[in-house]
Amino acid sequence: MTYTVALAQVNPACGDLDSNLKMHVAQAEQALEAGADLIVFPELSLTGYTLKDQTLDLMRRADCPAFGPLRDLSHHIAICAGFVEEGEDGIPYNSAFFMDAGDVVHVHRKMYLPTHGMFDELKFFGRGRNLSVFDTRFGRTGIVICRDLFHPLEVSAMSALGVDLLLAPSAMPARGFGGEELAIEQTVGLALGSASTFLGMFVVYVNRVGFDDGLGFYGGSALSDPVGEITALAPRFEAAQLLGTVDTSHIARHRYQLPIHREEDLAIVRHALEARRDS
């Protein structure tokens, strides 16, 4: 199967849900017109990233009336976008939904919320505790939000649960300007390369652009295929919508060539963890 994914490297307006919704609709329509089957937006794309005390005012459920236009559009193009989720427990979560065929198919709550240095996510958001994957017409799919991508155990667990397509909406601030590319780009490149090369999955990394209070998000959204090659790469610092092609036959071919997935034996890990727990 071959399908087209649109990487929406956008600059959301901070705290302005209405204008961001319009922007999402326009982006999805543009992608649809270009022949895309799926569009992926960055982390917190519907609200902006540096929300602080606006978090409480902006939290919504994925099935809220306000997101109706996106659910309608998802009859024609599947949509993954970031939002502040109002949990059933009343807690705001840094989440991303996946909509398809008019329904909310899945919501992922960010599990690892950076709270150090320039980051203070746990001050405002609850922590997602549910690692789950879901089946779509594109194959078994998982979502990791920004820092989640840097946790190999989370990504590996998703792989173990059978993920072929990993969506990685992000808001990665630029830092480390000493080299040919940014230091953070190298870090992201390692994460994309290892997820796709060793775990044999497609990774759709969509990072935002623009500035929040001095933090600049660098863009550089990318589609990484199972042989670890970047087959689509968006520019640095500029808003862009990029199309990438996913040929799912690459997955089986790559996993046959480098059968790490087949070799994997989670019983070893489980045994080690249990032995440690019991000691």
Binding site: A174, F177, G178, G179, E180, L182, G210, F211, G214, G216, Y218, R236, F237
Partner: peptide, 21 residues
């Protein structure tokens, strides 16, 4: 060496910073 910067990247980034701010 550690203080050396990729000035092309820095300048491009700072121009965007001034515009957006």
């Amino acid at each position: 060496d550690s203080l050396a910067l990729n000035n092309t990247l820095v300048y491009d980034y700072l121009r965007k910073f001034v515009q957006e701010e």
